[in-house]
Simulated assay, not measured.
Amino acid sequence: MLQDHQTLVRLNVGGICHTTSKSTLTRYPESHLAAMFSRSVPPILDDTGALFIDRDGQLFQYVLNFLRSPKLPLITDTKLLDQLSIEAEYYQLDAMV
């Protein structure tokens, strides 16, 4: 049986579905993502039962990859970097900013 921190979590981020583990999403305890798994932030579920996050689902793949391996690929597109910075601030991922 899986322990709670190994539980799979289905996310709907801006209409794009992602699946990851709870331990990945809570890697940074002070982040907004970690707060979603505390009692302080009530979850919003979509009609399939996935946790809904009203953000850009394509940008979230970068956030999720950062949580999995605290590195970002070399990104030279300044517009993309600006967008990722906004997402990192929203999710309160200071290490990603």
Results as ranks from 00 to 15, higher is better:
T76E: 12
A35N: 13
L33V: 03
L8V: 04
P42H: 09
S85W: 14
L93C: 08
V97Q: 12
T20W: 01
A88D: 01
N12Y: 07
A50V: 08
E89Y: 03
S85N: 15
H18G: 06
A34Q: 08
R39G: 13
Q92P: 01
D54S: 07
D47A: 11
E89K: 15
V97R: 09
S38I: 03
D54G: 03
S31G: 09
N65A: 11
R55F: 03
L74P: 12
M36Y: 07
T24K: 02
D4V: 14
G57Y: 00
S69A: 12
L80R: 14
E89T: 13
V41T: 07
S23N: 10
D77I: 06
Y91H: 09
T48L: 05
R27D: 06
V9S: 03
D77S: 06
D54M: 01
E87K: 00
L74S: 12
S31T: 05
I86F: 06
L84Q: 08
E30C: 03
I75T: 12
G49I: 12
K22L: 14
F52S: 09
Q92K: 05
L84R: 01
L64S: 06
I86S: 07
L74G: 08
D4I: 11
R10F: 11
E87G: 03
L45Y: 14
L25V: 00
V41D: 00
R55K: 12
M96H: 06
F66K: 04
S85V: 08
G15F: 02
Y28S: 08
I53E: 00
S85M: 15
A88W: 01
Y62K: 00
N65D: 15
I16S: 01
R10P: 01
A88Y: 02
